[in-house]
């Protein structure tokens, strides 16, 4: 389309330049142009025989490569897109990037079950799996509940409890004054406590979502240095999830899942946000 437009413009310029007086000459010129350049146009169409291009002679941008998908995902912040990128990287053997994108998905939606499942699988089979401590059962249950309560779920829960609190308050206000009012007071207190809890948790989650200090080791293998000197503490591998404790020039002071503190060069880790 652009080319056609360019050609038309050029034709107009030629016309002005030559100051063609008669339409017969212009017509002749058009015919000549068509005869001369139709082959070029058709040849170009042949060289790109896809449905999109055939017959159009123009080159239309096409969607998604991985690169573009990463950009789109960063723009849209859609957890499913991050998750899909994680799966794609995992299938390419890039465990670090895979874990990073699973974490990005979970940062937005902590209840994204496939992302958590795949992240757990990736951790389970990673060389650093031993660094992740086994938690007590009740702690696991607590984390599961907190993960289930994603930001959006907490927002809805807060709204529901706000509504229930309002109903309980109305019930209490219009309650028969001659009757015992313990039940409506209890209901109102219960709803208010839950409502406040939901909003406090939501606030904490939102803060964590915006200030997530998690990061992932990207290279296949790298050395964890002592925070104080250049002694190597241990080797860590691609996909290890660390918490950034401090930004220290060219290094991050990080905390490993087993609470080991160490130093990693900035170029070997990628932050979740």
């Amino acid at each position: 389309m652009n080319k056609c437009r360019e050609r038309t413009l050029l034709l107009n310029n030629q016309k002005r330049f030559l100051n063609l007086g008669s339409y017969s000459e212009l017509r002749l010129l058009l015919v000549l142009v068509i005869i001369l350049f139709c082959q070029i146009l058709f040849a170009q169409a042949d060289s790109l025989q896809t449905k999109k291009f055939t017959g159009s002679g123009e080159l239309t941008p096409l969607p998604d490569t991985l690169d573009k998908a990463m950009r789109i995902a960063e723009q849209k912040k859609n957890p499913d897109l991050f998750y899909n990128l994680g799966v794609e990287f995992f299938s390419r053997g890039e465990i670090g990037m895979a874990n990073l994108y699973f974490l990005k998905a979970l940062n937005i939606n902590s209840a994204h079950s496939p992302a958590r499942t795949n992240l757990e699988l990736s951790i389970h089979y990673s060389p650093d799996a031993d660094l992740y401590p086994e938690q007590l059962f009740l702690v696991q249950v607590l984390f599961k509940v907190l993960n289930y309560l994603s930001v959006n779920r907490l927002a809805i829960l807060g709204l529901v409890f706000l509504f229930l609190s309002a109903l309980a308050l109305c019930w209490l206000l219009f309650y028969n004054p001659e009757k015992e009012r313990a039940l409506p007071i209890l209901t109102l207190t219960f709803c208010l406590v839950l409502c406040v809890s939901a909003y406090v948790t939501l606030g904490i989650k939102l803060h964590h979502q915006q200030h997530n200090r998690s990061a992932v080791v990207i290279p296949r293998e790298t050395e964890l240095l002592s925070p104080a000197n250049n002694n190597v503490i241990q080797k860590v591998h691609s996909g290890l999830i660390v918490k950034i404790v401090q930004d220290n020039g060219n290094y991050y002071v990080v905390r490993l899942p087993d609470n080991q503190i160490g130093r990693l060069p900035k170029e070997v880790v990628r932050k979740v946000i």
Binding site: K76, K77, N78, V87, S91, T117, N152
Partner: peptide
């Protein structure tokens, strides 16, 4: 629930931009 294999990608017609309800 521990996975034995990587779960596949989620195919959707569109992936809307994420804006939290709040």
């Amino acid at each position: 629930r521990n996975p034995k294999a990587m779960l596949p990608q989620i195919k959707k017609e569109s992936y809307p931009a994420y804006v939290p309800y709040v």
